[in-house]
């Protein structure tokens, strides 16, 4: 992700140590990020939802909540924000658990500035890409919702590579009618070719294993 776009992204910092929080805040602002700092995970939760690409820099040992438990909590709430853990203690089991649960990075205090900035850039890029994917998927789903059940049936068979004639046979329709439904489905899904439609079906998870 290019540096000129950083100001549209927010880095959330949660650390109960005021000096560290201030330091991270100043550092990230000097790079150009928007920042929001919190002394506790509870304060952070009050600031939700996160509307723009963002990532969370979290001290793994917080007085009100263990950072790992908090990570689980966020996952349970369906909140997908990349987390960069900071730890004052080099404990390996914790870092393993954090990474397994999907942490974006695990840094030991005191860390190298470049490591943190790299981790943040990477996390924000991942979050941005994830958001674009989510947007694409959401609009696909919305479009798919507008299809009639007949159009969906036709589309399902088209993406399996059936010819119009075969579809007509399977559904007990005339070939003309299949062509009309197929045309409607392609238009509604905004697909130019059958290949586009197949890709969309894949994203929507329409392919069921064929028994």
């Amino acid at each position: 992700m290019s540096e000129d776009r950083v100001d549209t992204q927010t880095v959330y910092v949660v650390d109960d140590d005021a000096s560290v929080r201030d330091g991270l805040d100043s550092l990230l602002r000097s790079v150009g990020y928007r920042t929001a700092c919190f002394a506790s995970t509870r304060d952070f939760l009050a600031a939700l939802p996160l509307s723009r690409p963002s990532c969370l820099v979290l001290d793994i040992r917080m007085p009100d909540a263990n950072g790992l438990d908090f990570q689980d909590e966020l996952v349970r709430q369906g909140l997908r924000v990349p987390i960069i853990f900071l730890s004052g203690h080099g404990d390996v089991p914790m870092s393993v658990r954090a990474m397994k649960a999907g942490a974006s990075e695990f840094l030991l205090k005191p860390f190298r500035e470049q490591d943190l900035l790299d981790a943040i850039r990477h996390a924000l890029a991942a979050d941005g890409a994830r958001r674009i994917e989510d947007d694409v998927l959401a609009s696909l789903r919305a479009r798919y919702q507008t299809l009639t059940s007949r159009e969906r049936e036709v589309m399902a068979l088209v993406v399996l590579g059936r010819l119009n004639k075969q579809i007509a046979g399977e559904l007990g329709l005339s070939e003309i009618t299949v062509k009309v439904h197929r045309g409607h489905a392609m238009r509604k899904m905004e697909a130019d070719t059958a290949a586009d439609l197949i890709r969309m079906a894949e994203l929507l998870g329409l392919f069921r294993p064929i028994g």
Binding site: D17, S19, V20, D22, G23, L24, S26, L27, R29, S30, V31, G88, H89, K109, P110, F111, E113
Partner: peptide
């Protein structure tokens, strides 16, 4: 010792961050 290291590393972390920030500013 682990606790003391932590007590020292917190301000050192902050110092490093502020130092880099100051250079950038």
């Amino acid at each position: 010792s682990a606790s003391i290291a932590h007590e020292v590393s917190q301000p050192v972390t902050a110092i490093a961050a502020h130092g880099h920030a100051a250079l950038r500013w």
